[in-house]
Amino acid sequence: MTTLLQVNHLNMRFGGVVALNDCNFQVEKNSITALIGPNGAGKTTAFNCITGFYRANQGQLHFFPPNRPSVNLIQLLGQPFTWTDPIHPRRTLKKLGYKLFGGPHRIARAGIARTFQNVRLFKEMTVLENLLVAQHRQLVGHFLSGILNAKNFRKAENNALDHAMKWLAFFQLTTEANRLAGQLPYGHQRRVEIARALCTDPILLCLDEPAAGLNPQETKALSQLIRRLQKELHLTILLIEHDIGLVMELSDHVIVLDYGEVIAQGPPAAVQQNQKVLEAYLG
């Protein structure tokens, strides 16, 4: 097992509220890791730090994509300037670059895709367009040929369409391709969102409560799909979930957060017996 994501001493405060306090955990490659905990434990905050929507106050986040150099996720967000900067002009320039052009999109490009707790689709666009937007990076280079509708643009566009259709087929959404995303039933919207995240060709897929609002059948189908993503497509999945049944059934590794701290982690069976975890959930 190799580590894909390493979280060290992660701290996040909002004003006086400590949302994350010295969190340490790692996500193994090709695993399904679940982040659980009571409401307000800091799960979504941790997620937002990892995917770059919040800048952590302290700590390190390192991402080790296979066959590529490792990525310091916090650096990608742009760090504040310090008084030692003038001594290292090159480092400062790099910092400036990240400050100007950095942000969560850089983390997405590094190979971390995510979904949102409250589904965030482009509602006034069709499902297919949603999935095409996710492939923006692969397509945007063909500007002039796009204006002229030249062959290589059409080819790239068709490839993107095929790619999108492949994921739609995976999630059994092919018939919905040309419908407006906002008009789909909720369960379908959730799946479209995952499909859209997958269109970015991620290495690590972060799912924020993927089963929220789904009925038992839908949840079961979803869990099978997530399992297939791991087994057949060798993706690594990090998920937040309240449905403990789903977590226990699905995950290889469980991290329990309470009051912003990691109180337990390990295989699901071991975590289930942990005294601290029982206290956190019951008391």
């Binding site: 929507f53 999109h105 482009f122 509602k123 666009m125 269109c199």
Partner: peptide, 15 residues
């Protein structure tokens, strides 16, 4: 258009 619909989602997709 995607940015008009949802900026956060766009950023999560690497835009």
């Amino acid at each position: 258009e995607a940015l008009r619909e949802d900026e956060t989602a766009c950023r999560s997709l690497g835009i």
